[in-house]
Write a protein that binds this DNA or RNA. Sequence first.
RNA 1: GGGCGCGUAGCUCAGCGGGAGAGCACUCGGCUUACACCCGAGCGGUCGCAGGUUCGAACCCUGCCGCGCCCA
Length: 869
Amino acid sequence: MTNAHPPSRDLPAQFVPGEVEGRLYERWLERGYFEADPKSDKPPYCIVIPPPNVTGSLHLGHAMDHTLIDALTRRRRMQGYDALYLPGMDHAGIATQSVVERQLADAGEPGRRQMGREAFVARIWAWKAESGGAILGQMRRLGEGVDWTRERFTLDDGLSRAVQTVFTQMFDDGLIYRAERLVNWSPALQSAISDIEVDHREVEGELVSIRYGDGDDAVVVATTRVETMLGDTAVAVHPDDERYRHLVGRTIRMPITGRDIPVIADDHVDPAFGTGALKITPAHDPNDFEIGRRHGLPMPTIMDEAGVIADSGTRFDGLDRFAAREAVREELRAQGRIVEERRPYRHSIGHDSRTGVPIEPRLSLQWFVRVERLAKAAGDAVRAGDTRIHPPELASRYFDWVDSMHDWCISRQLWWGHRIPVWYGPDGQTICVGPEEEPPSGAGWRQDDDVLDTWFSSGLWPFSTLGWPERTPDLDRYYPTSVLVTGYDILFFWVVRMMMFGLYAMHAVPFRDVYLHGLIRDEHGRKMSKSKGNVIDPLELIDAFGADALRFTIARGSNPGTDMSLSTEWVAGSRNFVTKLWNATRFALANGVTVDMPLPGEPTDADRWILGRLREVREETDALLEEFQFAKATEGLYHFTWDELCDWYVELAKVQLRDESTAQGTRAVLGHVLDALLKLLHPVAPFVTEELWTTLSGGESVVVAPWPVDAGRPVDPAAAARVADLQKLVTEVRRFRTEQGLPDSRRVAARVADVSGDAEAALRALARLEPDGDGFAPTATVEVVLSDGAARVELDTSAAIDVAAERARLGRDLAAARKELEQAEKKLGNPKFVEKAPPTVVDGIRARRETAAADIERVTARLEALPTP
RNA sequence: GGGCGCGUAGCUCAGCGGGAGAGCACUCGGCUUACACCCGAGCGGUCGCAGGUUCGAACCCUGCCGCGCCCA
């Protein structure tokens, strides 16, 4: 293999992320590693980005999406797939329009209505050009392996064509209709919004009981929105309610408006609730609307788009709805109409999820998607397993939603978005104009003013980005996409819509797997919010600790469907891990390690052990990643790297490297393990692994290096057991030293019995023991029961030992062994246990009993041998 | 009100039928030629409460208490 960049075989003492990340990323782009190739003979793998809003900047939620998607696609690329991570952004209708409107207001410029539609939309485009770049820059900082040649925007020409095409098809299929309905109206946005854009929250309001009518004909009704009485057109009671039977069919005179309204009987009135009589305001309450429809009641609208009382024919016209509430209440009070007031009265009301303003149900003419058939298909596809939801617990939420979905209001009274492709003619014609058709011209024709809900276009994202409605090579190859990665919070907003549209337009699910991650919270599990001041900016974390550290932290915390807590300390911990990896590789390089050296024909126990562990870890990592278990996979690699490779193998390697007979084999094993480990870590920590792997291997790039399918060797249980014994022995001697206050710098003469030659050399190095020379006079003995019998280390501490400390140490050992013996004997003393438990379990307990008994005997002897004070 | 989930070491979490774990924090000792962003040794928990199933329960079942989320 020829190398464009001959490796320099050594590394700076410190990894400084800021100095290498940009350079590496540019190199990856130059070489086109991230560009997909539909003509390739490799199997395809595709993930489309959940498009961030152009308004914003990357927050930790995005960083999580992006880290996980990038990890999945990088791994597949290494596994030999033609992997496509497709980037793009969402025009985010309401959010973006609001931002620009606020900018205009702040700058004291004319508002959008004064500017006019065309100028205002042009203004947003200009702003988008400027702000859209911020996110792209942040994605590069995170190291995302996206195919920039395929970047898309929900409002670009191709995607707009896709929107128009789907709209037309659905219109022709009768799946899109226009109707006057009571919709969720946001007085703040002055637009309709869909059900899921409404948050229901408890508020402290008031419940006011009002008397309508007089004398025997009086009826008391209660309401939390007194002002709506201006739009009342009936009072409803239950047909079987004796209290009101005499009133049904008669009229009752309203206070303030002086209108006579009918008393009607309707089964839906709950006679047990309140007085059993209900005021009916059909144009301003969903239930009242239904009752009004059933009884053919008039439906006067008494508020305008901004929530200001209008056309009520009363003096309250012009008052904001909340001011009107007070004013109407006071007027009623003055007229002696108020029977009771409960305040505060806690009840749940809908709020516009974007602005937080209470929703005003409003009767208006809007466009809807008839969802029944589409939602059923979306549910069935998951039931049939065509798309799998991870974690499965969240599938039930999905089913609940699709199985009881209401028609979707898709028109928005905004300007920024896909304009509804419907034209109205001078004689009342309504025609839907497809992308290949010319809109009607001539006097009296005009296009619908509204734009589509943003989620309408994001719902098409998995195929519109691949070129639909054209039948492009990309579309043929990458649809259905492989996985969708997103937060569970937009399961309904987005995932359901993509399922519905994908099945409708493509007749196939949009993705095979859906991985739903949780939210990133602060270090105490609280939601991050600007008002709490606990928001962490991912770029600051990248600046402080490097992109790899942030990515590693996110991956390590991502259990399916579960929120994670994150603090700078955690990211610092990941940075430390990256540093550890860096230094381990530096150690290898300094000792002449390269990859592809032939593994030793006669590996040492340590070699066999670490190669076996590598095999196991690689298999676990693969299995976990296939199940989207990012946290567990990452955690496993963390511990393998730190606790096994660095803490033990590298230390043992130092001994082996000093010995001619094992030095070369050790280099080969270290090279082999690091080669595989760097590859395994690359998907989550791309920068540091690239820098280390290219230096170590001289290879072109780990981005395109093959995934280590054959890493390691089959486990050698005997060798593994001997290494475990050695670890136990070393730890026990270290413990003795610590208890005796013997610093590491102080070598202690020791005589070792019943330990193999190799192990003894390792023990002496790791426990800082020196040979027993002339005049060796042991002052203490450390005994350890190992898998094949007891080992003994006699130590000459060259002074009287601290007997009290040693007595304490042995005392703890004795207590532990006694507890162990007691537990084992209790179990074995239970005949039912011996009879019913599996033999392997019983044998295990027996072995523990024997070990404990031996420990007690040994420790007791040692204690007795100690000099008495 | 319905549904889902969670209560395990000071904090954040993993473990989900057979010996209570991790990271951080804390204590003690160390600049041991990869690493002080480090090394070594430790401290720390009636696994929310109460019943039940089982030879055996943090783990399965039931109830209760507390918390979160989604939907009404």
